[in-house]
């Protein structure tokens, strides 16, 4: 293993919205092959952080390095091509496309940015086998021909995961993967994340602390845009500042 095994690093990452500092001087270090959770009370800047890392937002200050390369100036699609693939809080599927087509849209990316509007659809059949494997891996292979909009919520999240791992991302960013789920679905998605995280690196924002405790190797706690604490679950849960931040936000 390399001496420096950080896959993603930020230095002094900050984002200001018209005078409001949503993210303040955040130093993050995501180690390769780990599941890293980003937690914190509402409005702590977790999703903003995600948007900065994937370049959906442009940071006001600071640097982002991925695999040792400065990616601060890149566009979102370029970041994705390098292997940082994110999911969204609201399940992001292509509603009118079937589950199979959803996954295939990710798989066909390897054809490059192709604008071949004259070519037949049939070239995409080559990806059907792999797409079905991915659907099977997340347990929804029976829904392959069903439009994504018709899937149940948990199935949509599973489909989103299948689409994300189709790109073989080096780093997966999952934004609240279990948000809005029933207990049964939470368990299934958590198991799924554990399974797909093998051999990859995952950074996730998650509110469900049971999931965080179960999955993550490292936890970073954000509060009011700043890093409050970092460590494993035992360290974090014992930290009085973290307790205060959580309790304080619940009272307010």
């Amino acid at each position: 293993m390399a001496v420096d095994d950080a896959i993603l690093e930020t230095e002094g990452l900050s984002k200001e919205f018209r005078g409001f500092l949503a993210v303040k001087n955040v130093h993050l270090r995501i180690r390769r092959g780990t599941i890293h959770a980003l937690i914190g009370p509402n409005g702590a800047g977790k999703t903003t952080c995600f948007n900065l890392l994937t370049k959906f937002l442009q940071p006001t200050a600071g640097r982002i390095r991925f695999e040792g390369r400065d990616i601060t100036a890149l566009r979102p699609a370029q970041v994705a091509k390098l292997g940082i693939v994110r999911s969204f809080q609201i399940s992001a599927v292509f509603g009118h496309l079937t589950a199979l087509e959803n996954v295939r849209v990710a798989l066909q990316r390897e054809r490059g940015e192709s604008f071949d509007f004259w070519r037949s659809h049939s070239v995409l059949r080559a990806y059907d086998g792999r797409a079905r494997e991915l659907l099977a891996a997340v347990g929804i292979e029976a829904m392959a021909e069903v439009p994504a909009a018709e899937l149940a919520y948990g199935q949509k999240r599973a489909l989103e995961l299948a689409t994300t791992i189709a790109l073989e991302p080096a780093l997966m960013l999952l934004d609240e993967p279990t948000a809005g789920m029933g207990r049964e679905d939470v368990g299934r998605i958590a198991a799924l994340i554990k399974q797909v995280a093998k051999g990859r690196t995952v950074l996730m924002v998650e509110h469900n602390l049971a999931v965080v405790a179960d999955l993550s190797d490292t936890i970073t706690v954000l509060a009011r845009g700043e890093v409050l604490a970092e460590g494993d679950y035992a360290q974090i849960s014992a930290d009085p500042r973290v307790r205060e931040a959580y309790l304080g936000s619940e009272e307010g």
Binding site: F56, A77, F94, H96
Partner: peptide, 21 residues
Amino acid sequence: SPFGQVLKAIRENEPRAVSLG
């Protein structure tokens, strides 16, 4: 076409299409 498939994906959810590269 494969191109058209990406167009439909953009129609359905542009940020997701961006996040897929």
